[in-house]
Write a protein that binds this DNA or RNA. Sequence first.
DNA 1: AGTGCCATGTAAGGAGTTACATGATTCG
DNA 2: CGAATCATGTAACTCCTTACATGGCACT
Lengths: 196, 196
Amino acid sequence: MSIRNGLLALLEDGAMYGYQLRAEFEARTGATWPLNIGQVYTTLGRLERDGLVVPVESGDDDDGHRRYALTPAGRAEVTGWFHTPVARGAPPRDELAIKLALALTVPGVDVNDVVRTQRTSTVRTLQDYTRLKVRADESGDLAWLLVLDSLVFQAEAEIRWLDHCESRLARFADRPSPARTVARQPAAAEQTSVRR
Amino acid sequence: MSIRNGLLALLEDGAMYGYQLRAEFEARTGATWPLNIGQVYTTLGRLERDGLVVPVESGDDDDGHRRYALTPAGRAEVTGWFHTPVARGAPPRDELAIKLALALTVPGVDVNDVVRTQRTSTVRTLQDYTRLKVRADESGDLAWLLVLDSLVFQAEAEIRWLDHCESRLARFADRPSPARTVARQPAAAEQTSVRR
DNA sequence: AGTGCCATGTAAGGAGTTACATGATTCG
DNA sequence: CGAATCATGTAACTCCTTACATGGCACT
């Protein structure tokens, strides 16, 4: 969904063709998320089908570029997107959180090992980001700086969380019952819960 | 990818059938990410095709349940998953970061408005999480607690980042040049960059 | 008898990736 | 000339979601 809306937002700046849209998207987000060109075309196809975008008629200056322009409906979609907060109500699945939660209940997995492995990896990632921030600072690209800041904040939060997990795990280590998950659903998981 | 690996990890606990896998997954992650049952079956089909899982032959106690068990290759996949840090090298596209980066360069969008709208929304989400944490504390479900902590840490980081953005934007407000992104790619975006 | 849950699927489609095919233009 | 880049696509596939079809079984 972010690409679809992102392309629409870019078209607010004037009609563009597919290749140009990709270049603009990557330039304005610091090339943080490479955008594959095939998806640009298929997305443009869906946008056209949905009436948010129309190929601009270039009878005169036909340079072989298939430019698209926003329709009124498309313009409405863009302003709507900017005015609506990103839905964090159904948060995207976090592979790391899933992995740790499952590591707790699956036999033969050392949770602390998982935590420590992830921590060193994330710390390294964080270092990469701060190195990039130097370059962003020099370039004076505000958008790129903010995107990088976002990644830095997220990585720092992840590290804090991992440390938090480690200390919480240590606190629970005394208990003989290893916190095997007991389902909270009334009846369903009472029956389906597996314990050998 | 997280579901595929999650199902494999659950099967480490013994052979299960589709419906049971969904119930276990949701129970062990605090029902934070509802798992749709259709995907469980299609994923199991791919896992079987790839030789990571086999339907268990239940000639005797055939109760109509189609149970799956891990193969040695599947077991190897699970331990590999737990030992490998989650790749944050190609970070998942963050819709919020994209939105803000584009809001900077698209005409007619008040970035501060976007920031403030998102902030109140995220604060509300954070409050919901802390309410849930009370229940998780009472239930004593360690896995659920950690998952919720992860969401809280992420939401807090997002709020901090939004505040950070606001102050950085204020600092840039003096400058007459509204930080229109100039592409850093050597030649490409020089040509494709649009400014009217 | 009907409602609701358990259980297994299929269909259709959006989003995203990798890979390939095909031309035009530009540059060494 | 050849290689790289620009530019537009298509194909095949994974992942994920929503929705529908189909049965069994239990409880009132």
